[in-house]
């Protein structure tokens, strides 16, 4: 039996910091995530459960809503991704499973997705170099979500605030490739 505590590894192995103030980049290795997939004919039930447990409605369009320290982001037709900080060893799969027994599948995604946040007044210019969707404030606002790709790597992007700050997640194995593109794209603004 192992007698030492195992260390969780970041998905971003070759990480570096971006100097300068026009854009900043942060790793979010501290999140717990779970996928919620609604079983056939159980949409109303699922909405009800969320409403009573969190006091919110799940978004029917690509948006993110947050209540009681847990965010739910639209993740495709009849799917949502629940996201929360992993403080006090929270584990969303274990939290949600009992709530949704028989009405939705709950699948742990904590380790499946690597997450970064990109913030600052040049964040849009950085992202334009790989993200094909329109991030102009008239087209994409705080609370908006999009599933798309960046530099040929599938991502989920949500705008967290008007800074703007974008939270971007991708499958874990792509983390370093994504970061390599991101650092390269930030260079122009890092002086």
């Amino acid at each position: 039996m192992a007698n030492t505590q195992w260390v969780a590894a970041s998905a971003f192995v070759e990480w570096r910091d971006i100097p300068g103030s026009s854009v900043s980049v942060t790793r979010r290795d501290d999140l717990t995530m779970a996928n919620l997939g609604v079983f056939e004919g159980q949409s109303d039930k699922v909405l009800e459960v969320i409403r009573s447990a969190y006091g919110i409605d799940l978004p029917r369009t690509p948006k993110i809503v947050t209540a009681r320290g847990t965010s739910f982001l639209w993740y495709g037709p009849n799917q949502w991704l629940a996201v929360a900080a992993r403080e006090q060893n929270r584990d969303l799969e274990l939290e949600l499973e009992p709530l949704f027994s028989g009405v939705a599948s709950i699948v742990d995604q904590t380790d499946a997705r690597a997450v970064v946040e990109i913030s600052g007044h040049r964040a849009r210019d950085v992202l334009a170099k790989g993200v094909p969707i329109d991030l102009h404030p008239s087209a994409f606002k705080t609370g908006d979500v999009a599933i798309t790709h960046a530099s040929h790597i599938g991502i989920v992007i949500c705008q967290m605030d008007d800074n703007p700050t974008y939270q971007i997640s991708m499958f874990r194995s792509f983390a370093d490739s994504f970061a390599e593109w991101l650092f390269h794209s930030c260079e122009e603004f890092s002086n």
Binding site: G37, Q79, A104, S105, V107, D108, D111, F171, R172
Partner: peptide
């Protein structure tokens, strides 16, 4: 319901 769990 199908969820990719490859990377988890």
């Amino acid at each position: 319901q199908l969820i990719s769990a490859t990377e988890q």
